[in-house]
Design a protein around this nucleic acid. Structure first.
Lengths: 157, 157
DNA sequence: TGGGTATTGATGGGCGTCAATGGGACATTA
DNA sequence: TAATGTCCCATTGACGCCCATCAATACCCA
């Protein structure tokens, strides 16, 4: 499975359409639905996009919580606020007004790779935020504990 | 399997009919009964809809509770209050008066995707409720423990 | 290595299709 | 006959599909 990495800026046309960067699109082939799932982030005025499998995983994880519980209800807001955006033949999606407004997107859209998912930002808003995150990580001396790599064939344990 | 996500507002006509959003309808093809199951929610003046398989799953879950227990009796109210609403050729259903009245629905109906099922609300009522849920999740810093991802090919356990 | 050409991703816009909606015709039942 | 519930058909507006253009890059060949 391909990973989403890097940043791409694309234009929004009069119809509200924007091309999803080609390297990102390829991760969505072979889905039952030809497009992306987009949902709002709690922490920022930005959105996150994922594929069908990830969305199904989120839905199933919600089902693990007790039915009718407050916790399930609160977190389900993500599903309720999500959008299915399908590709047109050129690989564009139409961003709903709600998303444009919340993210403050007018003429340009920034796609930010995040591994299994990617985010959708208004370019300026992202810049401001990224500066902060980078600085926090630098000051804090951020570290990351890596998982064990998956065992490959022919290797001894 | 398709997921129910997002929100859709549709009108109710003079005959009490309302179109079920197309993306939701597609999840009900191939059922023995061409329509949706609707049952009331305890916590809100709103209703939830699901397909045949989910309804069966709920019924089975109720059987797991002690027979003759108050708990089983109470939760069985869901089944007792459920309606089968069948699609007309255009994909509309007729909402029973009981549902319209309880939910306070008059001119518009809101369909809210929740993964494997969706809810039916009066738009204003939902809006008030959603604002609260989103805010609770944000303040609480709500997190979701994801299920283990399905194993991918080539990976060892 | 330079220049020319082919390919492809991003963008713009016209047009047909389909989902949502409204209303009438007909059957069924009380 | 009134009331109710299907089914069918008409309208309309949004959106998906198609085609054209442009620019950047990859490719090719001398």
């Amino acid at each position: 499975m391909a990973l989403f990495v890097g940043r791409h800026v694309n234009k929004i046309d009069k119809k509200g359409r924007v091309s999803v960067p080609k390297p990102f699109r390829s991760a969505f082939v072979g889905q039952s639905f030809n497009g992306i799932y987009v949902y709002p982030l709690f922490k920022f005025n930005a959105f996150e996009a994922c594929d069908e499998a990830f969305m199904a995983r989120m839905s199933d994880s919600l089902e693990d919580l007790p039915m009718f519980s407050d916790e399930q209800d609160d977190l389900s807001v993500i599903l309720e606020s999500a959008h299915q955006l399908s590709f047109d033949p050129e690989g564009r999606v139409a961003l709903p007004k709600e998303i444009l407004k919340t993210a403050g997107i007018t003429s340009q859209t920034l796609f930010v790779g995040r591994g299994r998912r990617f985010q959708i930002w208004e370019p300026q808003a992202y810049e401001a935020n990224r500066g902060q995150a980078f600085e926090r990580a630098r000051v804090r001396g951020a570290t990351l504990q890596l998982r064990q790599p998956p065992r490959r064939e022919g290797e001894e344990s």
